[in-house]
């Protein structure tokens, strides 16, 4: 059966995901070492150790994301996170930075290493380099690849692949995007945040609500209509005579229907985005996907998707998995 890798932003979400059938949970410490460094989110050292014990007692794994790029002059903060993840009993760490991978291979050789999507390793040569140089055992593929390309990659590598199937969708190659810091000074790579709420401002202007990020208008919606969060790459902009969602519509990823194709492509693990999501949301999504991967493994048709409810009011896409998206 394909491994279902589920997000947990809080200890409560971790327990909910494990109880809903997650095979593995990924989470991070409450600081800039992980790429979901949001206020009120993530784990203390104690909470992680408790979470690992809870998950292990129920046959689930815990993967710790230490996937930002350490700040020059401040590497010890990231090195401590690695050591503490190993001490807490983490089953693997998810890393993106070359220096941190080298440090882990040298100082924590027995700690299993997964390559974060933030490393954007998009072909067999890059993946094999990470495998050979740092003993990486699994790579989370960037969201720029089609299913056919994923299958081709799996034929040329010996490590496992993990792909995103549900939740937020980066339209840019991850780990290589500084749109957010251009507008706000804070970026995924350096600070673990994208389009941070601290830099969002809403203003009622005539019949419209303007949503701005770092002073740049990301979209305008009629007053009273639902206003999506102003994520930079999902904004509405103007270019020459055209106005619209030039990069991507405010959609989220749903590749449920592609689970059989991804299995045939040799994918080992399916990842659900959303460490910032509520415990109830996580439990519902996990339950639905667990049923789907079980059906797939048993050669049965996928169960009627219970996910429609979760994406209701918001469009979903299969993103780059379908070649026409490009």
């Amino acid at each position: 059966m394909m491994e279902l890798v589920c997000p947990a932003g809080t200890p409560a979400a971790l327990r909910a995901a494990v109880e809903a059938g997650a095979h593995a949970i990924y989470c991070g410490f409450a600081d800039e070492t992980n790429a979901r460094n949001f206020p009120g989110l993530n784990f203390s050292r104690e909470e992680l150790a408790e979470g690992v014990a809870f998950a292990h007692a129920r046959g689930a794994k815990v993967l710790v994301a230490i996937n930002t790029f350490p700040r020059a002059g401040a590497e010890p903060l990231w090195h401590r996170a690695l050591a503490d993840a190993e001490t807490a009993g983490a089953d693997a760490v998810i890393l993106a930075d070359l220096g941190l991978l080298a440090h882990t291979a040298e100082h924590h050789p027995n700690l299993r290493r997964h390559l974060s999507v933030q490393a954007a390793a998009a072909n067999p040569d890059a993946i094999n380099l990470y495998a050979q140089a740092f003993g990486v055992r699994r790579v989370v593929l960037p969201r720029v690849l089609s299913v056919q390309e994923i299958a081709a990659i799996n034929r040329e590598i010996d490590v496992e692949t993990e792909v995103f199937v549900f939740g937020g969708l980066c339209v840019m190659a991850e780990g290589r995007c500084s749109l957010s810091s251009y507008a706000t000074g804070r970026s995924p790579n350096m600070n673990g945040v994208c389009s941070p709420a601290s830099h969002v401002a809403y203003a009622e202007e005539g019949p419209e609500l303007a949503a701005r990020l770092g002073g740049f208008t990301i979209h305008r919606t009629p007053k009273g209509a639902p206003a999506p969060y102003p994520t930079l790459c999902k904004g509405c902009f103007t270019s020459a005579e055209q106005t619209g969602h030039i990069f991507e519509d405010p959609v989220s990823l749903d590749a449920t229907q592609l689970i059989p194709a991804l299995a045939r492509a040799g994918v080992s693990a399916l990842k659900i985005e959303g460490r910032q999501r509520s415990r109830a949301y996580v439990a519902q999504v996990v339950r639905s996907f667990r049923a789907a991967v079980e059906a797939q493994a048993a050669g049965q048709p996928l169960p009627e998707s219970a996910l429609a409810r979760l994406t209701e009011g918001q469009a979903a896409t299969t993103g780059a998995y379908a070649k026409t998206w490009r």
Binding site: P70, A72, E75, D97, G99, L100, G175, R176
Partner: peptide, 13 residues
């Protein structure tokens, strides 16, 4: 376009 954010990465390269 290669992420060199810290000394460890620079030294590895």
């Amino acid at each position: 376009m290669v992420n060199v954010y810290n000394e460890g990465t620079l030294r590895w390269l």
